[in-house]
Amino acid sequence: MLSYVIRRILATIPVMLIVALFVFSLLYLAPGDPAAVIAGDQASVADIARIRASLGLDRPFLVRFGSWLWHVLHGDLGTSIFTNLPVTHMIAQSIQPTFSLMVLTLILSVVVGVPLGVIAAARQGSWIDRSVMLMAVFGFSTPVFVIGYLLAYLFGLELNWLPVQGFTPITQGFWPFLRSLILPSVALGMIYIALIARITRATMLEVLSQDYVRTARAKGVGERSILLLHALKNAAVPVVTVIGLGVGLLIGGAVVTETVFAIPGLGRLTTDAILRRDYPVIQGVVLLFSLTYVLVNLIVDLLYTVFDPRIRY
C-alpha cells in the first residue's frame, strides 16, 4: 500500500514537468508582448524593446525555462510583470473565492445529484426516472454562462433575492459570504449535478441486481434499507471517481463563472493574465491548477480502498 502511494506520488513528477514545459513553451511562442501593453500608446518602438530587455524577455528559451524551473523548485513562482508583486501573493489573494466556489459547488452537486440518482434508480422507468435523466441531459447541454445569466436575471434583478455580482470574504460574515456564492455555485453545479445523478443511477442499477442485494431482499430487509445500506455504499466508488475527473471540469467552469459573476478569483486572474501576457502569473496558476487536479485524483484513487475493500494495491 505504502509503496503504491509512493509510486503514485513519484509518477506525478514527470506529469507536472510535462505540464510546466508545455505551458512555458506555449507562452514563449505566443505572439503578444507584455512590454507593448505596459508601454502604452505613447511609447516608441525603442522604448518597448528596452522594457522587453529589462523584463528579461529577450533571453533564449532554455535559459528562461531553466531559471523559472529553478525558482519554482524553491517555492518561488516569480514576480508578476505588471503588478510587480510575487505571484504567490497574488495567488493567495485570489484563492479564497475560487476555493470556496469549488467546494460549495461540490457539496451542492453531491447533495442534489446523489439523491436524484438514487430516486431515479429506485423508480427505474417511471416518469420520475425519465424526468431526472432528461434534466441531466439538459444540464450537460447548456453552457455555464447561459445558466449563470439566467439565474442572475431571475434571482438577482427580477426578484432581488441575491447579489448579482462580487464575492464577500468569509471574514465579513458567513451569511453574506454564502449569499454571494449561491448563484455562481448553482450555475457551475448544474453540469456536475447532472453528471453525478447519472453515475449514481447507473451504479445503483448495477448494484441492485447483484446477488447479495437479492439475498437481502429475500431475507425481508426493507427496500429503503437496501437502497441506503447496501446499494449506496457500493455506489460511492464511481461517484468519487467522477468527483476526481470533474475537478478539471470544475476549474474550467470556474473561469467562466468568475467572469459572469465578477468574482475576483483564480479564473479571473488567469484570463486577465493571458490577455496581458503576464507570463509568471499564467504559469503559476496553471501549475497550481494542474497540481490540484493531480492531487485530487491521487486522493480519489486512495479513497477507493476505503469504499471498496476488495480493491488492493
Binding site: P34, A35, A36, V37, V45
Partner: peptide, 12 residues
C-alpha cells in the same frame, strides 16, 4: 482578430 496585447506588439 486577436487581443490588444498582440496588436500592441505587432503594430510595432
Amino acid at each position: 482578430a486577436t487581443d490588444w496585447a498582440t496588436v500592441g506588439s505587432r503594430r510595432a
